[in-house]
Nucleic acid binder design. Structure first.
Lengths: 264, 264
DNA sequence: ATTATATAATACCATAGGGAACTTGTCAAA
DNA sequence: TTTGACAAGTTCCCTATGGTATTATATAAT
């Protein structure tokens, strides 16, 4: 066992993890992981105080900037809160901080077994709702696209999309719209769009959707509405996905996250 | 596209925004906003190169660390990508980067007009499914709680929760469970729980749920399943919320975010 | 022509040091 | 008892400087 009669004072050798100078992981990253692990292990509990920046500097032999950066990471993750003049404290579990992404939906698209079939591509006069959403005059022409996404032949998602119709370059614009979604998930192309707003709702399949998705009406489904804007902040595309509820689920974690979730 | 064959010379006076030294916003924050605004305005388009760190230093008269921090923010937001030795580039819109929060759910709880009613609090033998989820022996006693959340008298969510029953401190444990949810959203108390996993599904109301929620069966609803772990990583609470679909929606933005989303 | 090597540019990372703003507690004065 | 000033501790923030790893490019050698 370890001798606990430590001489007072003097940055005593920390019994526990330390920074590995020969690792590929930079010190700030290691330190963040160390602290996160201590929280995960319960050595630091909600409400507890995290050692001050000065203490951490001494303790791990790193510079203030490095400590700050490590703490900033935990701050971003919502794991701790810091108040100037008071200290840094471990935050209790807060459900509202949980986040989830569209990774599951993206996977659905990028799955090699997933195919996209166009049900229709045509122009149509805008309904009041469409004209409102896209900011075009009533009865203006819009491009209307319907897609069906199937996985191994089994339909899983139905997509409706309305695109503004630009008479100056009609064909190109339409083709952009057609190919747009593929690129959207991949990150290639699509230099036309600047911003998008997304909304997720729970809904049930209508008759039409049910027949297309090879299911019975009234089944549970997600409705993911989207609207994209161009660089002049004008709406370009409005539409929504209908995804069978049994084919999609979103997951989130609250509290201590998995180790090392670097940026992309 | 921006012409990158710039005349070699001389940090020319930048026509455009600059850092305000007398502002409350720290320089790194201002710089991040400037760049974000340039992306939002289309001055920097997807695929374009962001000026190098050195250039930004000169241009805005700040130190490298400050620049790095600003860029880190954009990196975290998924707005740009950086590769060592190559440069930093504006990223096209990627749907997968959209993140949704459970803030909406939290708001539902913390609304002053929301009240919680207990339908039942009792112990029951664990079904196979419960024993599996909570990691307790089959037929072990568990605490079973049913809650009904109403907003202005109108029921919006139904909650079932199973808690492990600790014979050593039965009453305290039970009460912890009862009060747990309140604290979970607020961030007070609840030093018992370390981590939680959440799953969000689309579903339709069963007969029972419909009558409780004062709606008709077959209506759309969210099913938010949760499982919480203690500091020994043992499951403590398993259950799920059934939230009326017309009372909850999740929203997110992809691409350029609103100005200034600091940490909490 | 192809391959290796040097060079520059770049994003990264860390150190050392100092200052500003806020909170808390103590102690003296009213 | 209450108020006010002060000091210490803390989180923040920035500057200045230098080093490392990777990439791209130009140059030399094969």
């Amino acid at each position: 066992m370890v001798d606990s009669r430590l001489p007072a004072g003097r940055a005593r050798p920390v019994r526990g993890p330390s920074i590995d100078r020969n690792s590929f992981e930079p010190p700030y990253y290691q330190l963040a992981n160390i602290l996160r692990r201590q929280i995960a292990a319960g050595e630091l509990r909600p409400g507890d105080r995290v050692p001050s920046e000065g203490q951490l500097c001494e303790q791990y032999g790193v510079s203030p900037m490095t400590v700050r950066r490590a703490i900033n990471i935990l701050l971003d993750e919502g794991l701790v809160t810091a108040t100037r003049g008071r200290g840094t404290f471990v935050r209790p579990l807060v459900l509202g901080t949980a986040t989830f992404g569209l990774q599951a939906l993206e996977d659905l698209f990028n799955d090699a077994h997933t195919t996209v079939r166009f049900l229709s591509v045509k122009t149509a006069p805008a309904t009041p709702r469409i004209s409102q959403k896209l900011g075009v005059p009533a009865d203006a022409k819009v491009i209307f696209i319907r897609r069906l996404l199937s996985n191994d032949g089994e339909p899983v998602a139905y997509h409706r999309e309305y695109l503004v119709f630009d008479p100056t370059q009609p064909i190109v614009e339409a083709e952009m719209g057609i190919t747009s979604l593929q690129g959207l998930f991949e990150g290639r192309g699509e230099t036309v769009l600047k911003r998008g707003d997304l909304t997720i709702e729970a809904t049930v399949l209508t008759e039409e959707e049910a027949t297309l998705l090879n299911a019975t009406p009234g089944r549970a489904a997600f409705r993911i509405e989207h609207i994209f804007f161009d660089f002049e902040d004008r709406p370009v595309s409005w539409g929504w996905f209908i995804v069978r509820g049994d084919r999609l689920r979103f997951q989130a974690t609250v509290g201590v996250r998995r180790e090392g979730e670097g940026r992309s």
